[in-house]
Simulated assay, not measured.
Amino acid sequence: MQKIQYPIILNIIFEKLNLFGIKPVIIGGYIRDHLLQNDSKDIDIELYNVENIDQVEDILKEFGSVNEVGKAFCVIKLNIEDLDLDFSLPRIDSKIGSGHRGFKITTDSHLDFKTATSRRDFTINAVGYDVIEHKLLDPFGGIEDLTNKQLKAVDLNKFAEDPLRVFRAIQFASRFELEIDEKLLHLCKIMVDNNQLNFLSKERIFAEIEKLLLKSKNPSSGFIFLKNIGLFKMFVEFNTLSHEEFIEVITLLDNYKRSSEFTNKLSLITMFVILTSKFQIRDIEIFLHRLTDDKEIIHKVLNIHNFIRTPSYTLSMRIDKKVLESYLQSIQMKNYKAFMDMVEPKIKGKDLIAQGIKPSVEFSEILEEKYQKQIKGYLS
Rank of each mutant, 00 (worst) to 15 (best):
F14R: 06
T310D: 15
R165P: 02
L367T: 12
Y6N: 03
T106Y: 14
E362G: 08
K3L: 07
L184Q: 10
F262D: 04
G70T: 00
I31P: 02
K41Y: 10
V127R: 03
D341F: 09
Y336V: 03
I224L: 15
M191S: 05
L213Y: 11
L214W: 09
L19G: 07
L187S: 13
L89E: 13
L213Q: 02
L17I: 04
K149A: 08
E51A: 10
I284C: 08
V69F: 06
K16F: 01
P7L: 04
R290V: 00
P24L: 04
I297Y: 00
F206C: 01
L178Q: 12
A72M: 00
Y256K: 05
K322G: 10
L36N: 08
F103E: 02
N195C: 08
I304D: 03
S201V: 02
D351Q: 01
N79Y: 13
Y48L: 02
Q372D: 14
N38V: 00
Q332T: 12
F206Y: 10
R168W: 04
D121P: 01
I105V: 15
I53T: 13
V154C: 08
Q329T: 09
P359E: 10
G21L: 01
S65I: 04
V323Y: 10
D320H: 06
H305P: 13
E244D: 14
R168G: 12
E244G: 03
G222T: 04
L214V: 01
I76W: 02
D351C: 00
Q5A: 11
G29C: 01
K95C: 00
K278M: 12
S216T: 13
D54I: 07
L156A: 13
S316T: 12
F246L: 11
F14L: 09
P311K: 13
L268M: 02
V273Y: 12
N148Y: 04
K233M: 03
F235N: 02
Q171H: 06
R258G: 01
I281S: 11
L83P: 00
E81F: 05
E177T: 10
V236N: 09
K376R: 14
D39Y: 10
L197C: 11
G349S: 13
K71D: 08
K322D: 15
V361H: 09
L379H: 05
I250S: 01
T251W: 01
S260H: 07
A173W: 08
K348V: 15
R318E: 12
L315Y: 06
Q372V: 15
D58N: 11
N18F: 04
L35F: 04
I247L: 05
F172A: 05
I27L: 14
I274E: 06
I247P: 03
L17G: 08
F159H: 11
D44P: 01
L185H: 09
D294P: 01
F262I: 02
I9C: 06
L379R: 09
T240I: 03
V25I: 15
H110K: 14
E182H: 15
G102S: 00
D341V: 06
E62R: 11
A72P: 00
R282C: 05
D33H: 03
T251M: 08
D112P: 05
D294C: 09
I274Q: 12
K376E: 15
D33R: 04
K346P: 00
S98D: 05
E179A: 13
H243L: 06
L136R: 07
L17M: 14
E245F: 05
K77W: 08
V301R: 07
N264L: 12
I284Q: 15
F103A: 02
N18H: 13
T314Y: 13
N79S: 04
S242C: 02
K217P: 04
K233V: 07
V343Y: 10
